[in-house]
Amino acid sequence: MINLLSAEFSRLFKNKLLWALSAFVTGFGVFEIVMQYIDSRQMGTVSYLDNTLFAYVLVIGGCGAIFCSMFIGTDYQDGTIRNKLVVGHRREQMYLCTYVISVCASVVMMALYFAVQFTLGIALLGKPAMGVSQLLVFIGIGMLTIAAFDAVYVLISMLIPSRSSAAVACLLVFFGLIIVAAVINGMLDAPEYIQEYSMTVNGVELSEPQPNPRYLSGMKREFYQFLYDFLPTGQGVQLVSCAVLHPIRLALCSLGITAASILGGICVFRNEDIK
């Protein structure tokens, strides 16, 4: 396993895609800060670093889809995965090694993003409004969310030998989950009561508040809230808006997704025919 990690790390740090994606994530971080700064100056409002600090979760989640599929797919496309199997590396170790490398790539991107946030961000927007402990909790949840994203991408990329097919599948999963999270977010955000506006001779009049038929309540609300907390994209949306209701549940869900993906992936990969 150590030999494999050593080999893969040497390949990782020479990988142009990693540095291209890292540059993109860093650029995105700079763009977010500058836009917040310009907005606050134009509107005369106060902007906090908190608004930009956790946007990385979804960005790196998307970049991870590209990186994992391309990095792992290269091993299949160039046939170099065979070199590891022929000389007696166990498939379980190969799978775990690939996962560790994928998480490390995400950590590199995340570190560069935070470097920008805690230098340029503090310079332009000031320190984060949230306390240190909450900040650390959010950063921890963000890391677990990204680890869950990577586990899913590694699963897909290790089981689909075609690099382009794996890339398409990973991106479809990412964007599919984004759409699902956005829909659930919309459902959960629906107000409990609605009021209708009507124009009268006396001007605009508000009707009596009526129960909103689209409002989710009871078990249904619990279910959708759980789904929102469970999905990595749902977690990402919560972190971006700094509106995390159930931090422990989020962390446990990420760990669950990671563990299930790795175990399932290893089980299938162990018996997969490699060409």
């Binding site: 390949r11 290269t74 160039d78 046939g79 170099t80 995965i81 065979r82 070199n83 022929v86 000389v87 007696g88 060409k275």
Partner: peptide
């Protein structure tokens, strides 16, 4: 063991 099965397994 060493092997070259089908195409050479090398990083392009």
């Amino acid at each position: 063991m060493g092997a070259v099965v089908e195409t050479p397994s090398i990083y392009a």
